[in-house]
Amino acid sequence: MKLIIRKLKYSLLLVLLLNLVNCYYNPLVQKVLVPDPKEDSSILLGLPLLGLTPTSIAISITGQIRDETGAAVPNAILTVNSRSNGLDGLDSSATTDSGGRFFIHLSTGSTTFAVTKGGSSYFSFTLLVSSPLDIRVTEIKDNSSLVEVSSFFAYPPGNQPSFFELTDSGPKNNTYVENAPSMLSFYFSDIILLPEDEVPYSTWFSENILITPPVSVESVSIQGQSLHGMPDGFVNETYTISLGPGIRSQSGTPLTPRTISFTCGSSCGLPP
């Protein structure tokens, strides 16, 4: 009896092994377990359709030009000298507005611009657009005055956004002043929206403009497109002044945040 049971076990095991072998060589199962290399290559060829390889596209962007003191550069003309990807409908030039901003329709890839101001050559730069979130300058040439090209944003074609910009300041950015400034002055690209009636100007100033290290600012006044205040407490130190988006234009556009820096010399803090 035991011998019969043992033979039955071996027979069942043999049948199971044969079924597994036949299953592996079944054409349908074989196709799943060992795919056809030709089919694999066809899948790889389809990857560009999924956007997995670089493809040039048209994109509308804005950027800003400032001079070495941080002042916006209006009426500068940008002319395209060369581009790595040519597409139909791209712009060949642009002009900066009162806030130093230019708006232009480009393709992804590299574009080199020549910039002129007042009819004279100003500088040239190369802009690399990798995606709407990755726009940067890779090279600036003939830049004896150390201009700044920055503040890039992409926007939907035909829907140009509005900006409210700091156009100049006193003290100016990246400067050295020997004596403590008696007045802080800020100039904007549009009329400033006044604080609400119950908010003192000095409170509004401290809520929207951060000075580090801190100094007190009194006698704040707003006059159209300019803002002024009388500071007290400057010493021999490097200061940063950060202006936030709580400052708005009369039309309600928030200020593009901006930080300026200057150094107060050895006479700062001394009695006049």
Rank of each mutant, 00 (worst) to 15 (best):
A114M: 14
K117E: 03
G119A: 02
S120T: 09
Y122N: 00
Y122L: 11
S124K: 08
S124E: 08
F125E: 03
F125K: 00
T126A: 04
L127V: 02
V129T: 12
S130R: 10
S130M: 03
P132I: 06
D134N: 15
R136E: 12
N143E: 08
S145K: 15
S145H: 11
V149H: 02
F152E: 00
Y155I: 01
P156H: 01
P156L: 02
G158Q: 07
N159R: 15
Q160A: 12
S162P: 09
S162H: 14
S162K: 14
F163L: 09
F163Q: 03
T167A: 02
D168Y: 09
G170H: 12
P171W: 00
N173S: 09
N174D: 12
Y176K: 10
Y176G: 01
P181W: 06
Y187S: 11
F188C: 14
S189W: 07
D190R: 03
I192C: 00
I192Y: 00
L194Q: 15
E196K: 11
V199H: 03
Y201L: 15
Y201Q: 08
Y201W: 06
Y201G: 01
Y201D: 05
S202H: 03
T203A: 13
N208E: 10
I209Q: 06
L210Q: 09
I211K: 05
P214V: 12
V215I: 13
E218H: 10
